[in-house]
Structure formats: C-alpha cells, structure tokens
Write a protein that binds this DNA or RNA. Structure first.
Lengths: 117, 117
DNA sequence: TCCGATTGCAACCATATGGTTGCTTGGACT
DNA sequence: AGTCCAAGCAACCATATGGTTGCAATCGGA
C-alpha cells in the first residue's frame, strides 16, 4: 500500500514538512516570503529591489520555494514571471508539528505509566 | 520597547522557530527525536546503537537540539548524560507557522479588495 | 534596427554542515 | 593497579549552501 492517500503523486506529509522546514530555516527565504506577503505577487527583479541580495540569489531561493510548493510561478506578458504565495504546504507542516508534539507527550505519558507499574 | 514580552532572556518567537526549523530540517535529527519519543530519555551511546550513524555525530546533533531547546540534558550517575524531549519549542514553532499562514491569507484578501476598488 | 530592461544559465567562491576516525579523560568494578 | 565502558574533544573530509559576477537570450519600444 502506498504511504499516502489523496492525490496519486502526493509526496507524503513528512516530505512536504521537511521541505517547508528547510525553506523556513533560512532568513533570506523568510524575508522573500514576508515581502511577497506584504506586497503581493512579485517578480524576482522586483524582490531584488527591496531585499539586500542579488536577483540571482533570489531566483535560486524562488526555485527552492517553488519546489516546496510555498510559491507558484505564473508566466505573464513580456516574459515576466510573477511569484505568488501558497499557504497550503505551511498548513501541512503545521499539522506535522502538532502531530509530532502530541506524539511526544503521549509517549511521555506511556513512559510514566510504565514506571508506575 | 523590547520585541518580546515574558521572560527577560526570551530569545524571541522567530528565533525559537528558526532553530526548530533548522533542527527538523535534517532527517538524522528527526530520527533521533523519534527514537527519543519511542524509547524515552536516552544517552548518546544508547541512541548510537539504534541509529545508523556514529555516536559523535549523534552527540553533535544533540548539542544542536539542546541549543534549540528541543531536548534537555540531565547528568546522572556514573558520568552518564540522558537526553529528554521538550515539546515547548515545537509548539512555539507551530504558533509561528499558524500566524504566518494567517498573515498570508489576510494580505491576499487585502490585495483582492484593493483590486476591486 | 538598435537599445534597454528582464530572465535564465553557468562558473566560481567561501563557509556551513553532516559525518568520520582517533585520542584523551574519567569513573566503576575486580 | 589494571581494565572496561561511556563521554568529550579535535582534526579532518566531502558535500551542500548561500551568494556573487558575468554572459547569453529575449522581449517591447524608440
């Protein structure tokens, strides 16, 4: 049986969560996401005007964010590519965190009960 | 005004969240945490028996996890050091994720309203 | 047609990261 | 005293990562 249900090509909850964690672990990436949240969809060069790093660095981060599903690239007129935020993977990661924390506390309780017996 | 309330030496929500993201971005670190969740508090050598990496690698990961607040080191008898899970930072990171996703959707709504006007 | 602006691609660089081997330290037990 | 086992420390290595510069391709407009 496949490890996941839903869309046939679903990468798995943990895989999505890992990509989100990797993405959010970097400050520059968080800055890019914050800029997109504040100013709406934008291109790489547009972001390069507001952030202290070069356009190419931003482009690399955007491909990583795109692979993580946190942004989607929409090709518009005049060869421009606008990137839009996508909150779905973050909610997956959030569920993953919640399940992990719950698992920890559950097993801690089980350990406590074991020590009582 | 200080950026945070609560304990005077509080590192800030984003800083805690970043450390959690960094910690959880690595599979070996997640394996260590899973082993601790499954078997209860354990030492580095104990974990090295269950995981496919060396004790020293695990020790490095444990110091990182300890700095992130995800585990606490308790020194016992005969120079043993046991590591115990700590779920509090994960809940902080979870709140951070939730706030971020909410912020994204809020600003997307604001953009939509702006386009309507 | 030429120019400016924008995207994509490639090479390169410095540092961080994950992991290993090897050695020392330090008890606890015989 | 000698031995065994666990922990700490240090050097080292390969690769990943974040960032840069430079260049080619492509489009719209003067």
């Amino acid at each position: 049986m496949p490890p996941e249900s839903g869309t046939p090509s679903a990468p798995g909850v943990e895989a999505v969560a890992e990509q989100v964690f990797v993405a959010l672990a970097d400050p520059s990436r968080r800055n890019i996401l914050a800029a997109l949240a504040a100013g709406g969809p934008a291109t790489a060069t547009d972001l390069a005007n507001r952030l202290p790093i070069t356009r190419q660095a931003i482009a690399k981060h955007l491909t990583l964010l795109s692979e993580a599903g946190l942004v989607t690239a929409e090709h518009g007129e005049r060869r421009r590519v606008r990137f839009r935020l996508q909150s779905a993977p973050m909610q997956v990661a959030q569920q993953f965190l919640a399940a992990m924390a719950r698992d920890w506390d559950t097993n801690l309780d089980a350990l406590r009960n074991h020590l009582d017996s």
